[in-house]
């Protein structure tokens, strides 16, 4: 049931991308608005699937340990938030991309940027549905913490914001290379959206790293153990801190900032995928 809904959501995102593309080709404001509505509809169904999975995961866990009282029920609900394996994280990543795009870009979500964003959300979800094991497994003890919810939530919202910045940076580089005539979206706006997304991502990644440290402190007895995932998230954080200072203090703008945003997103991808598949460590479950 949930996988069907997710399949549908993938198609809706694809449709939204198509509408946005048509809107760009015909410079139609009305189509643009339709595209945003389509994205919103996909988002709503996506949210439904998320909660559906949460419920399913809760049911699964309560078979093993039927909660005795309200407190136990509540903590089981929190622990079973569907963010505890690779599949669930991808589903939420895709959700955050389209959610943040709508919230943070709002009226600016149009043109090539909107196409890229909708395609990104669609591809991530398609990858999750087609290539990743989606079975629900019981949680290992270290994952049973209230920090899981806030830690993973903030990290992935951060990643999603960086993904948006990456999309904007790519378009920016592409458009400033071509002749100035007829830019699809005016580059200063793209540059500003890119910065906004980076600032948002930095905020969330910082909170993500902090909550991760608090959690590690209670689970492993060290708030920082230089586990590869931790280390790489710190490297990512350094890169974006460098970007923010370069722009705010040194006054860098335009293409140089765009390249930094791309470098930063490469670090995000490595933190997310590379570490899990290439480097062994404590975080190997996600």
């Amino acid at each position: 049931m949930i996988s069907q809904v997710l399949g549908l959501v993938t198609l809706v995102y694809l449709t939204a991308a198509g509408i946005f593309l048509a809107a760009t080709l015909w410079s139609s404001r009305r189509l643009e608005a339709w595209g945003r509505w389509a994205l919103l509809a996909g988002l709503a169904a996506h949210l439904g699937a998320f909660f559906g999975r949460w419920l399913e995961s809760y049911r699964h866990a309560s078979q093993f340990t039927p909660p005795q009282d309200l407190g136990a029920t509540l903590s089981l609900v929190i622990h079973q938030v569907p963010l505890s394996n690779f599949f669930e994280s991808l589903v939420f990543f895709s959700f955050s991309v389209s959610f943040l795009a709508l919230v943070s870009f709002r009226r600016h979500l149009k043109g090539a940027l909107a196409v890229v964003v909708a395609l990104l959300a669609c591809l991530i979800l398609a990858y999750a549905s087609l290539a990743v094991d989606s079975s629900i497994r019981p949680l290992m003890p270290a994952l049973k913490s209230n920090w899981l919810l806030i830690h993973v939530l903030t990290c992935f919202i951060g990643y999603a914001a960086f993904a948006l910045a990456f999309g904007a940076a790519l378009l920016y580089l592409w458009q400033t290379r071509r002749s100035k005539a007829n830019p699809i979206a005016p580059p200063p706006e793209l540059e500003r959206l890119m910065y906004r997304a980076v600032a948002l991502g930095f905020l969330f990644l910082s909170v993500g790293i902090l909550t991760g440290a608090v959690w590690a402190d209670s689970a492993w007895g060290r708030y920082w153990s230089w586990d590869p995932k931790e280390t790489w998230s710190l490297i990512t954080w350094f890169i974006y801190a460098g970007l923010l200072h370069a722009r705010l203090v040194k006054g860098w703008q335009g293409r140089r900032i765009a390249w930094l945003a791309i470098l930063g997103f490469a670090a995000v991808l490595f933190t997310y995928f590379g570490v899990s598949f290439l480097l062994p460590g404590l975080h190997s479950y996600l």
Binding site: W226, P228, T231, W232, I235, F238, H245, A246, V249, K250
Partner: peptide, 24 residues
């Protein structure tokens, strides 16, 4: 100087990377 900051962040990034590549 902010140049020192950026240099140090860069050095830290490289050191941290080395630590994930060389088993510790």
């Amino acid at each position: 100087s902010i140049r020192l900051t950026v240099t140090l962040l860069l050095i830290l990034a490289v050191v941290a990377t080395l630590g994930t590549v060389i088993p510790q």
